[in-house]
């Protein structure tokens, strides 16, 4: 075994340290490339009492309101927003509470690929033994209920299809007792409706207001939420798999998380 100078040993140690420095640098570099999958902002539900909170969201047919500086290709992507706060799909809700979610739906309807998502599931309010949600103040449990509501609301018809779904699902890390599954079809605006609402200079139709409630368990658990009504890629009429690409795939648009935390 050759004798090596202490400079040689220092060289080994320095290389290893430098090497791990490079590893850390590459980690930071990769995480900061926004095109690869950036984190979106966070929206907190507004507490309305010790055990209740309200979450207000809006869905738009394009990015102009929430993501005005989007690159051209993404400008036509539909978005979920909170107010006009920019892309924010990490939702925070308080623990052990009833959460009321109110969604202003500006987008028109698209036929579901999987009828499973036409049914309201997992909400805490019931109507005729079925979980229900409210459409402009009237209860419904399935998209087939919508035509009856339409007939009773003069001057305002709804699309028979949802524009989106809001579906909260559990992940492998979720403790089985705390599993949550909530899915609500967000009924679409009729495509013939006039565009008479002005938001930041963009014209949309009168939105459908859909609201529903669900309960949260203890703090510290993160669920996922995702839209299951394909709308992406206008060129190919949403036939699978194309309907599910683009905004459906991208954090900050139609995929995000629901975290139960104390605040």
């Amino acid at each position: 075994m050759k004798q090596h100078s202490s400079g040689f040993i220092i060289g080994i140690v320095a290389s290893i340290i430098l090497g791990f420095g490079i590893v850390a640098g590459i980690w930071l570099g990769l995480s900061s490339i926004s095109g690869l999958g950036s984190e979106s902002g966070v929206v907190q539900a507004t507490r309305t009492g010790p055990n209740s909170a309200t979450l207000e969201l809006a869905t738009y047919p394009d990015s102009h309101v929430c993501h005005a500086d989007a690159p051209a290709a993404q400008a036509i992507w539909v978005t979920y927003c909170s107010g006009t706060n920019g892309l924010a799909t990490h939702l925070e809700v308080p623990p052990n509470s009833v959460i009321t979610v109110v969604i202003k739906q500006y987008d028109s309807g698209t036929t579901l690929i999987n009828n499973y998502f036409g049914q309201v599931r997992g909400t805490s309010q019931m109507s005729n033994g079925q979980p229900m949600a409210m459409l402009d103040g009237k209860p419904f449990s399935n998209i087939s209920d919508v035509s009856a509501i339409s007939k009773n609301t003069p001057g305002h018809t709804f699309s028979s299809d949802p524009g989106h779904t809001f579906t909260i699902q559990s992940a492998p890390n979720t403790p089985p007792d705390e599993a949550i599954f909530v899915s609500v079809p967000l009924i679409g605006v009729n495509s013939n409706a006039p565009t008479n609402v002005n938001i930041n200079g963009n014209m949309y139709s009168t939105p459908n207001i859909i609201s529903f409630q669900f309960r949260t368990g203890p703090a510290g658990i993160t669920y996922l939420w995702h839209c299951y009504d394909p709308c992406g890629d206008t060129q190919y009429a949403r036939k699978p798999p194309f309907g599910f690409s683009g905004p459906m795939w991208t954090l900050g648009y139609m995929a995000g998380t629901v975290s139960v935390t104390n605040y």
Partner: peptide, 20 residues
């Protein structure tokens, strides 16, 4: 590879987003 092992050292997508 080291990025992969970094992300997989703990549950949850903590160091990178799932798409990254």
């Amino acid at each position: 590879a080291f990025m992969i092992r970094l992300e997989q050292s703990t549950p949850g997508a903590i160091f990178f987003t799932p798409s990254t």
